[in-house]
Design a protein around this nucleic acid. Structure first.
Lengths: 141, 141
DNA sequence: ATAAAAAAAGATTTTGTTGTCTTTTATTCT
DNA sequence: AGAATAAAAGACAACAAAATCTTTTTTTAT
């Protein structure tokens, strides 16, 4: 489904959304410990997200990562596309180089429906909304 | 989504279902050429499927692979589970070690729905039905 | 200046994919 | 029946990609 990097990315972003702020930045170590993921791998992922303006960061002492208001309004879809690339939503489910409604693979029609559902999950709710649910319901990350 | 092996497996099984029979067995070379996939990688996958009784094979001259009637009545789900393992349907979409309705991750509820849809695609139609559509509509593999 | 933190680059390990070669089995032809 | 042959099965090596770890550099608050 999602790559490991992408799963870590989603969890990290939601964790930041729920627990950090510009006034309360979080270091990689803290996030990695909380999510129980390899610290340096996570650092690389956060740098990727930072370069794409999906998370904000400040260097130096009392620096760290957090989500700006703009970051908060992005959707999980942008996070997924940033890490796993957009083909995850568009490529043929059987890996055929060409596969379209005119020239479909045997699973094309169903795959379209299924993907619409997946996109729906991660596209319409901005990160801030998901984070709110995480906090309210004390969901795990 | 599916691993490369799994995509190859699905395509190979459907190809066999549509083009081979006990009387008309197909060699790995033929299948690999038709699907444009690496021959030896495909051979390994077919051996896997054969060990799990999802495809049938006969050695020796005029031997090859085909689908028995029983193989034909299996579903694509068994193929996918054979190659990618059952966790692809059951594991947490965010990769959390424990994630259930009692202790859900932020995407759990939606993931359940989405997966039900995916399973539906590949579970209910037996291979023979999918193959019939492939033949009728001249779908690509 | 010093220390803390992210950023960057790169080395290493692990996993997945592809290719080569050998062995085993079954068929077909004498 | 026995030899030749065709095909799957299996062992193993090479390569590629993904994941993880290490080291160095840059920035910035104190």
């Amino acid at each position: 489904m999602f790559s490991k990097s992408c799963k870590y990315a989603i969890r990290a972003v939601l964790f930041l959304a729920a627990n950090a702020s510009e006034a309360q930045k979080m270091g990689v170590r803290e996030i990695a410990d909380a999510l129980d993921v390899p610290k340096h791998f996570l650092a690389k992922i956060l740098q990727d997200l930072s370069r794409h303006n999906l998370v904000s960061s400040v260097k130096g002492p009392s620096g760290g990562f957090f989500l700006s208001d703009k970051n908060m309004r992005a959707t999980l879809r942008s996070v997924v596309e940033c890490i796993d690339g957009p083909e995850i939503f568009t490529g043929c489910i059987l890996g055929l180089p060409v596969c379209s409604s005119e020239n479909p693979c045997p699973m094309h029609k169903q795959a379209v429906v299924y993907r619409a559902g997946l996109l729906d999950l991660i596209e319409h709710q901005p990160i801030v909304e998901v984070a709110r649910k995480v906090k309210e319901q004390g969901l795990k990350l």
